[in-house]
Amino acid sequence: MANEHGHVVHAGSSHGSTKSYIIGFILSVILTVIPFGLVMYPTLSESATLIVIWVMAIVQIFVHLGFFLHMNTSSEQRWNVVAFAFTILITVIVVAGSLWIIHGMHSNMLAH
């Protein structure tokens, strides 16, 4: 689709600026370096280190979704967010089902 100036308009597509990519990259590096430093130079207990690693990983997921995949709550991104949520749901079902099956088989093997 072209506008009155002859430029092509891509409806629903949003591309990040160089500034947003740089901010996303810097945040990603920081969110990677902190857990790496905690593992290489242990200053916290093992459980606290594990919690920090999990928190940094979850925050990093949102940084990637926002700054690199440009997923947000805008109406243009609604179907991308729905598709992503469906993917997460299916992944959770497959992983949980696999663990349930493996646990059941393990229990049956110990019973015999």
Rank of each mutant, 00 (worst) to 15 (best):
H106K: 11
V52Q: 02
N72R: 04
I30Q: 03
F67V: 01
H7E: 15
G104M: 10
G24F: 01
H10S: 07
N80D: 14
V95L: 02
V92H: 04
S20D: 13
M40Y: 14
S13V: 15
L44A: 08
P42K: 04
S20K: 03
H103L: 08
A48D: 14
S47N: 07
G12A: 06
H70E: 12
T73N: 08
T49P: 04
T87E: 06
L65Y: 03
N72F: 00
I51H: 00
Q60G: 11
L38P: 05
M105A: 09
S107K: 15
I101M: 02
T73P: 00
W79V: 05
A96M: 07
L27H: 09
I30S: 04
H112Y: 08
V95Q: 02
F68L: 01
H7T: 14
S28G: 12
T18Q: 09
T32V: 00
V63W: 01
I51Y: 01
V29I: 13
S28Y: 05
I34H: 07
A83Q: 13
Q77R: 12
F36G: 09
L69N: 11
G24H: 03
A48G: 03
V52F: 06
Q60E: 14
F36K: 09
N108G: 14
Q60C: 01
E46M: 06
V55N: 02
L50T: 15
A11V: 10
F84C: 08
M109D: 14
I58T: 14
F67I: 01
I34M: 07
Y21A: 03
